[in-house]
Amino acid sequence: MSYEVPDLSAVVAEQSHDLLFATVSGAHLYGFPSRDSDVDLRGVHVLPIAEVLGLRHGPETKERMWVRDGVEIDLVTHDVQKFCRLLTRPNGYVLEQLLSPLVVHTTDAHRRLVSLAAGCLTSRHGHHYRGFAVTQWRLFEKTGEIKPLLYTFRALLTGVHLLRTGEVNAHLPTLLEKLDGPDYLLGLIEAKILGEHRALAGVDGRPAPERLEADLAHWQEQLREARDTSALPEEPPAFEEVHDFVVNLRLAISG
């Protein structure tokens, strides 16, 4: 399933702080948007030095949700310091946002940060993806909806692929092909197009609960093995470079 990035240049121009980058994340990045999916726009803003060192601290995180031209947009940006703090921890969300191919706005600083991303990958990212998968599976058990089921396997397969190869890939259809994942998930992706909160019970040819539980256990074990045998370091080797990046960027923008 392809996705064309909408023209959101006006959204970027409206922001009160400089934007380092803005990319599309969420279901569009994962490869299973619905017809009624909102657009998850994620990025980094840069607070001027006066809003970092003074008494009136600027917002570390900015959130806004609104409708533009009939499309609901969910915009979340972090200040560069917070974003990079998360980047140097085992946080898959910010990695996926930074490396998303669905780029709405970019800068030289964004490209520099992308170049540092490989040095932020660690074996501990396995914990992030396991935790996210567990949370989504519980949501699936509660709601019976296709969406959290797809999120569960997307997280597990992204984690396995990352730990095995050092590559961040959040696109579920691609991961299914690369890792020979459960074939019924492609059918569920097609079914989800019809509605963001469509129930699994209403889908013809849906997998039996026993099959889902067996596949869940299998990919959880694959993630555990990938974490235990990963060649990735436990700590990010690029930590000092990322630290210097934040300091130099802040000084350059405020100067």
Rank of each mutant, 00 (worst) to 15 (best):
Q97R: 07
L98N: 00
S100I: 06
S100T: 06
P101W: 08
P101Y: 08
P101M: 12
P101E: 09
L102F: 13
V104F: 04
V104K: 02
H105M: 11
T106L: 04
T107P: 04
D108L: 14
A109W: 09
A109K: 12
H110R: 11
H110K: 09
R112L: 13
R112Q: 15
L113E: 02
V114G: 04
V114A: 10
S115G: 15
S115I: 02
L116I: 09
L116S: 10
L116R: 06
A117C: 12
A117V: 11
G119A: 13
C120I: 10
L121Q: 03
T122R: 07
S123C: 12
R124F: 06
R124H: 12
H125Y: 14
G126I: 02
H127I: 10
H128Q: 10
H128C: 07
H128W: 13
H128P: 04
Y129K: 04
Y129F: 15
G131F: 04
G131A: 12
F132C: 09
A133R: 03
T135I: 07
T135P: 01
T135F: 08
T135Q: 14
T135K: 15
Q136L: 05
R138G: 13
R138L: 14
L139R: 15
L139I: 11
L139K: 14
F140W: 10
F140C: 08
F140N: 02
F140D: 04
K142V: 07
K142R: 15
T143F: 08
E145G: 09
E145S: 12
E145T: 09
I146L: 11
K147C: 11
K147Y: 10
P148H: 13
L149G: 05
L150P: 00
L150Y: 04
L150K: 04
Y151P: 00
T152S: 10
F153A: 07
A155G: 11
L156Q: 03
L157G: 01
L157S: 03
L157K: 02
V160I: 11
H161Y: 15
H161G: 03
L162C: 05
L163F: 08
R164V: 05
G166I: 08
G166R: 12
N169Q: 09
N169R: 15
H171A: 02
L172Y: 02
L172T: 01
L172Q: 02
P173Q: 13
P173S: 14
P173G: 11
P173R: 11
L175A: 05
L175Q: 03
L176E: 01
L176S: 00
L176F: 02
K178N: 03
K178P: 00
L179A: 07
L179I: 05
D180F: 08
D180P: 00
G181K: 00
G181V: 06
D183Q: 13
D183K: 13
Y184A: 06
Y184I: 05
Y184W: 13
L185G: 01
L185T: 01
L185Y: 00
L185E: 01
L186K: 13
L186T: 07
G187D: 06
G187S: 09
G187Y: 02
G187M: 05
L188A: 02
L188S: 02
I189P: 01
A191N: 06
A191R: 01
K192N: 08
I193K: 14
G195D: 07
E196I: 03
E196T: 10
E196F: 09
E196S: 11
E196L: 10
H197Q: 13
R198T: 12
R198P: 03
R198Y: 05
R198Q: 12
A199V: 03
A199G: 08
